[in-house]
Design a protein around this nucleic acid. Sequence first.
DNA 1: ATTATTCATAAGAAAAATTTATTTCTTCTA
DNA 2: TAGAAGAAATAAATTTTTCTTATGAATAAT
Lengths: 309, 309
Amino acid sequence: MNNISLKQLRYFCALAEHGHFGRAAEVSGISQPALSVQIKELEIELGIALFERSSRHVCLTAFGEQVTVRVNEILRAVDDLYDLARASRDRLTGRFKIGIIPTIAPYLLPTVLRYLSEEYSELDIHVRETLSSKLINELNDRTLDCAILALPIGETSFTEFPLFTESMVLVRPVTSEIPITSPEQLLDQKLLLLEEGHCFREQALTFCKVGTTRPRDGLDGSSLSTLVQMVGAGLGVTFIPEMAVPVEVGSARVCLNRFRPPEPGRVVGMIWRKSNPLASQFERVAEIVRRAAEYLRHQHRSQYDGLGI
Amino acid sequence: MNNISLKQLRYFCALAEHGHFGRAAEVSGISQPALSVQIKELEIELGIALFERSSRHVCLTAFGEQVTVRVNEILRAVDDLYDLARASRDRLTGRFKIGIIPTIAPYLLPTVLRYLSEEYSELDIHVRETLSSKLINELNDRTLDCAILALPIGETSFTEFPLFTESMVLVRPVTSEIPITSPEQLLDQKLLLLEEGHCFREQALTFCKVGTTRPRDGLDGSSLSTLVQMVGAGLGVTFIPEMAVPVEVGSARVCLNRFRPPEPGRVVGMIWRKSNPLASQFERVAEIVRRAAEYLRHQHRSQYDGLGI
DNA sequence: ATTATTCATAAGAAAAATTTATTTCTTCTA
DNA sequence: TAGAAGAAATAAATTTTTCTTATGAATAAT
């Protein structure tokens, strides 16, 4: 019930090369008898002689010659594994699946992808955009490697890496003259929100000190873009995250207001499974994402000016 | 100074397939701890994790996935070695180098090659035609696998396999009316011989009871064909081996005479190194050569009729 | 003949792989 | 929330494999 071993194959190559048991053994760092035995074992295992021994020379049989070619390929392939490992150890390679929530994706993703592919040229990046809860499931399923979403998640199996803090901005019709005195008051001005499931919805409601359970009046939008357009049409007011402002507020006839500190907002971060062996690599990835976000924020900071509430 | 082993790679594949240490171990016919240890060793050796372990699942890392493909190829290549061995064990394959002396080659070779390639379709046959002494050197050098020549050689390191006995035939000009009473007498009729080195020359001289050392008169020919043509031109007489008759005696104006039994002749046989692992195969080869020669002899037996001396 | 070279074999030693038993951690359940 | 069950890691002991040293046998060189 024995089997060919790589050791035997390496010994075989040494002997094929040197044509001399003693020398091949020396090169292989073992004694001559050890080599003799292993070669013999290999021949027994294959059931056919690899070498022709005579007192003066040791040389390959025709079969041995055929084997040499193949064995060299095998050993090269094995050595390639080491190379592959070395390459993978230092830098992320292969497929990399990143999840991101819809209230961040459109604004952050273009820059992040640019930054990432600059840093990891060989990385095959796949993006999945969906709600936090699904991202978390997919992370647990190993369908995703990491996800960018609002912290905290509160699962002990994940590492949470905070990227940046993002303020909420109030979006009102340009015609609106009503002064705002308190967050709660906004509810009376028809607060438009994202559909159930979006964490940003919950964050907005929390800010307004309203429980999630309270029934809404059915004006939920499926995207921030839709919400802003609705506000522009005078249907109500809404919040959007700071980062969405440059993209969503352009054509719409709305005005923006920042809040007085402490501004309402959320922590956006990256998470991954603690058990993922690439965990250490992910910190580098997260850092790149952070820088991408910082760059974006810097770009846009000047483009609008809000009034404190 | 440890190294990857094929065992580890097989275990790796089992685990990659089953995603469960216990089950993979069972399939591999070892205990779970043994598998755990070997996988860990492999990961340590590569310096990077192959699997992501968590309480519920064991699954490949991105790196592990890359490795799977390569390892499968490696294991397949190793298994191919077994197949190759099995194929080579029962039948001769690969390159097969056969030597043959010039006084046999042209007559025997076409038939032998046909017979051989019929029997061993995958055999890559190389032929070397030269003098016995060179053939023997090349056999010792392992440049040749076997040789067909006149026996005996008298080297203990070779196996001598007799193929057939071949008579010498006397070739005289058709005009010759001189009766031949003894072999010695032929020398006076200008005996034409092959150049120094050809064993057939020595065999002829031996028959005429003349030592090799005696200086010749410079009419040596380089081939049997030349000799026969010279005889036809009336320059003398010669011997040729029986087998050469159908090829060499056609256009030439010569007549042939067989000798009275016991006919002079030589034993043609095949030799190979005793140490060659394919020795057993060579007996089969020799048998095929023998059959080829027999066929030839049968074909030609009727084509001429000699007169006993 | 004698010596040297070279591979094979044998027996004991070292190293590696494996087993059983146990621990740790997580998840599932009552 | 305690406890049981499942799964992998670890530990210690054992078996298997590989290796080393010593020796033998065959052949070639002196």
